[in-house]
Computed example of a mutant assay.
Amino acid sequence: MATQEERRTQTRDALLAAGATLFAARGVAGASVDAIAHQAGRTSGALYDHFGSKEGLLFALLESWVDDATQAITADQAAATTLEEWVAAMWHAVARPPSGDDRWIALEHELWSYAAQSDEARRYLARRYRAAWDGVDAVAATWTGPAPDTPDVRVGPAVIGLLLGLEMMRRIDPSAVSDETAIAALRGVLVGASDRAATR
C-alpha cells in the first residue's frame, strides 16, 4: 500500500501530466481546472492543494521542464572547449529538449500569449527571463571577455530571444533552420556584442 507521501507524489505527477496534455491541446485559457482534474482522475481540490491555481500548475510544469533543460545545458556547457560547443549545448537543449518533448517550447509560446491577459503570468515570465538573461551574460563573458560597463551591450536578452525565435522557425519548417545555422547565428550575437563592447 502506498504511503501518504507516495500518494501525494502520484497525484502531483498525474496533475502535471494532465496539465501538459490539456494546455497543449486547448491552450492555457481553454484548459479549465475541472478538465485538468478530470483528465488526471483527481479532484479540482487536489489541484488547488498542490499548486494553488491553474497558473501555479502551469508554472510548476514549465519549471520542471526548464530545470531539466538547464541541467542538460550546464553539463554540456561545462564540457565545452570552444564557443561553438558552448552555443551548441544551449541550442540542442531547446531544439531537442531532454523532457517534455516539444510540448515545453509550445507551452512556453502559449504562456507568452496568456501573459498578455494575466499579470501573474507576465510577472512570472519577467522574473524567469531576467534570471536566464543574467545567466547567459555571466557565462558568456568567459568566452567573449568581461561584460562591458554599459548596460545596453547585454547579450542575454538577444541570445535568449534569438534562441526561441530560431526554434519557432524550425517548428514551422525544420529544413529552414539547421543546427549549423542556429549555432552560427547564436555565436554571431555573442561575438558581435563582444566586438561592439571592445570598440567603446
Rank of each mutant, 00 (worst) to 15 (best):
F23M: 01
A24C: 10
A25W: 02
A25H: 07
A25I: 02
V28N: 00
V33S: 11
V33I: 15
V33L: 13
D34Q: 08
A35E: 13
A35V: 11
I36H: 06
H38T: 12
H38E: 15
H38S: 04
A40F: 01
R42T: 10
T43N: 09
S44Y: 14
S44I: 04
G45L: 02
G45Q: 07
G45M: 06
G45K: 01
A46R: 06
A46H: 14
L47E: 02
L47G: 02
L47Q: 02
D49I: 03
D49H: 15
H50P: 02
F51L: 05
F51A: 07
G52A: 06
K54W: 08
K54I: 12
E55C: 05
E55L: 13
E55A: 09
G56M: 11
L58R: 13
L58S: 01
L61F: 09
L62S: 08
L62H: 09
E63C: 05
S64K: 14
W65H: 14
V66K: 04
V66R: 14
D67A: 14
D68N: 10
T70V: 13
A72E: 05
D76L: 08
A79M: 07
T82H: 05
L83V: 06
L83W: 05
E85P: 01
E85A: 14
E85S: 07
V87Q: 01
V87K: 02
A88I: 04
A89M: 08
A89S: 09
M90W: 05
M90Q: 13
M90F: 11
M90T: 12
W91K: 04
H92A: 13
A93I: 00
V94C: 14
V94Y: 14
V94Q: 09
A95F: 14
R96T: 10
R96G: 10
